[in-house]
Design a protein around this nucleic acid. Structure first.
Lengths: 146, 146
DNA sequence: GTCTATGCAAACCCTTTGCAGCCAT
DNA sequence: ATGGCTGCAAAGGGTTTGCATAGAC
């Protein structure tokens, strides 16, 4: 795969990319760390963070800020939307056609220069639908159940 | 104003609501804290957090998770969109007509039950446009310049 | 008077950073 | 060999919590 200038394709790097690409979830740094350790047991969390950041900068993965205050990472670069579970925070992909959104006109923009928009959906994930799981705190606490 | 059941309208509470309603910005807990202290100097940050959370639950204010990893609060309950400055993270309001968004159909939703969506705009705020401010780290670090 | 709200400080959690040694090129 | 990578541990920054006291009802 196309390595960017002065970005060595180390085992960790390759492995992180691999994890993200084959993952259906949108793992947090911590989850990537756990996955990575199955193959490279001595990997430190700092390495994971550093690599995720680098891969983002190079445009090899995408980052999203979840409402739970943690960042999630996505190895799928094709256009798609995200749907976030209101109960557990799980993130799903929606591969649908781009949805047209009319950006506000300059005179509506309160002095801002509009450059784009972010659209994401909210919903209830399959797991929560079936388990009738109790609502969980919107931020932090208990990642155990994931 | 309509107080919710078992929610005492303390001075702090009233004052926080007032700050948020008259603020054009979308302050973080820390910023609310600073504002509050002008009137109630011994207010602790914990109190601010607890009240912001309560007021959100009661639907008296709105919360938004900024890309900087901090939560912003909004006292304006009327329909409006937000525009986030790509450079400094400042949040502006866009009081425009609701924009139609076609939600994905169930069969496109990957098992999720779609309940709604969030649409927000990105842009460059007036201050950053004029000052040509250097891009700042997308998360954390240096609130000083605000 | 009762029961919630507050202040203070410590705990928590996610993320970043400093540094000495390792490894891809 | 060399300059970027890694592990480890500690620091940072936002948010939450425990507990004794103050305050709303």
């Amino acid at each position: 795969m196309a390595a960017a200038p002065d970005l060595r394709m180390t085992r960790h790097r390759r492995c992180i990319l691999d994890c993200l690409r084959r993952s259906e979830e949108h793992p947090t740094a911590d989850q990537v760390h756990r996955l990575l350790r199955r193959r490279l047991p001595r990997t430190s969390l700092a390495t994971v963070y550093r690599n995720l950041e680098l891969l983002c900068e190079r445009g090899l993965i995408r980052r999203m800020d979840g409402p739970d205050g943690r960042r999630h990472y996505d190895g799928d670069l094709e256009h798609h939307y995200h749907v976030v579970c209101e109960r557990c925070g799980r993130v799903g992909d929606l591969h649908v056609e781009p949805i047209a959104v009319r950006d506000p006109r300059p005179r509506e923009a309160e002095g801002f220069e509009i450059t784009g928009h972010r659209l994401e959906f909210t919903g209830i994930c399959p797991q929560c639908k079936s388990t009738q799981a109790r609502r969980r705190s919107p931020r932090r606490h208990s990642t155990k159940e994931a």
